[in-house]
């Protein structure tokens, strides 16, 4: 286990300096939209919160943390907060393979495609798309979270944004529950899969769905992807821990203890693999973490886009 204080102070300094917990400048991480010509205006703003974009960098940094957990070198971690956030962030970005970055862009492109195919009136503004600050909140840095969230919310408010589409459970939770409480700004928040509308199909497939804690339990939204899948003729295997009683993938412990995170992940992956069906996740953290087990896991958006 790493010293939580070291990790929190690094993440907090990175968010303050670069608006990203990993210090990755936005222009480097958020490139998925460049060849898509998405409209800028619409009834909704697509707000990705950059979590899918950060996934390959999280994976890379966890590989390093894994190597040094409980070694003497772990004690030196605190000194990295003396480096400017951009410095460590750009280093991390350079170490992450372009193939991994391209893979991370796929769910984002699929989500934009699904929304367009469902005739949802949405726009995308990369200048307004920012990280929500949720990791600071989860780590207990309330002050840091509020300061960051206020900046993000004010920018949206100044641009006249009232309705947003989120694509991951953590950003959705931040905007639904935390932003109104701590920033004073409220938005009408929809998750992308709540807005999809396709002709029924009969794909004749069966999958195992891993519900993320923040959709299944905190937001009680796990029926919606099941309805979308059933509309396409894709049935979902019943497993013991699902919906409101889903089990965590272990992802949230990644930065403090990769070992603990792996233990929890292995247990959950085994549960999901028992049916022998392909596994579907709908959170970038769960997706990345479960993939580490070597299991056949894909994002919900990938499956839907393939058959829509």
């Amino acid at each position: 286990m790493f010293n939580p204080r070291d990790i929190i102070e690094i993440l907090a300094a990175n968010v303050r300096q670069t608006k990203s917990p990993f210090g990755i400048p936005k222009f480097m991480a958020n490139t998925w939209h460049k060849d898509l010509c998405l409209p800028k205006e619409g009834e909704y703003l697509l707000f990705t919160g950059l979590m899918y974009q950060f996934a390959p960098y999280i994976e890379k940094s966890t590989q390093y943390l894994e190597k040094y957990e409980d070694t003497k070198i772990a004690g030196y971690l605190k000194y990295t907060r003396l480096l400017p956030g951009y410095f460590s962030g750009i280093g991390l970005a350079m170490m992450t393979k372009p193939k991994e970055k391209k893979k991370a862009a796929k769910p984002l492109k699929d989500i934009a495609y699904l929304l367009q195919k469902s005739k949802v009136n949405f726009g995308y503004r990369p200048d307004l798309d920012n990280y929500s600050g949720i990791l600071l909140y989860d780590m207990g840095d309330q002050q840091g979270f509020i300061a960051h969230a206020k900046k993000v919310a004010r920018q949206l408010q100044d641009a006249g944004i009232k309705k947003i589409i989120t694509i991951d459970p953590h950003t959705a939770y931040a905007f639904k529950e935390l932003y109104p409480k701590y920033t004073g700004f409220g938005f009408d928040v929809k998750q992308y899969f709540e807005l999809l509308n396709f002709e029924p199909k009969d794909c004749g497939l069966e999958v195992t769905l891993h519900d993320p804690c923040f959709f299944g339990r905190y937001q009680k939204l796990s029926d919606v992807p099941r309805e979308q899948l059933s509309n396409m003729g894709i049935s979902v295997t019943n497993i013991r821990n699902q919906g409101e009683f889903t089990s965590c993938c272990g992802g949230p412990a990644e930065s403090i203890s990769p070992r603990l995170s792996n233990e929890i992940m292995e247990k959950r992956a085994k549960e999901l693999q028992a049916s022998g069906k392909p596994i579907v996740a709908y959170c970038p953290i769960c997706l990345g973490n479960l993939k580490k087990s070597g299991a056949d896991v894909q994002d919900l958006s990938t499956l839907l886009a393939k058959h829509a």
């Binding site: 286990m1 939580p4 780590m139 804690c213 339990r217 403090i256 929890i264």
Partner: peptide
């Protein structure tokens, strides 16, 4: 014992 607090995954099962 504060380091232990950061093992919590904020998964919400206990609250549920």
């Amino acid at each position: 014992n504060s380091d232990e607090l950061w093992r919590c995954l904020h998964c919400g099962l206990c609250t549920q």
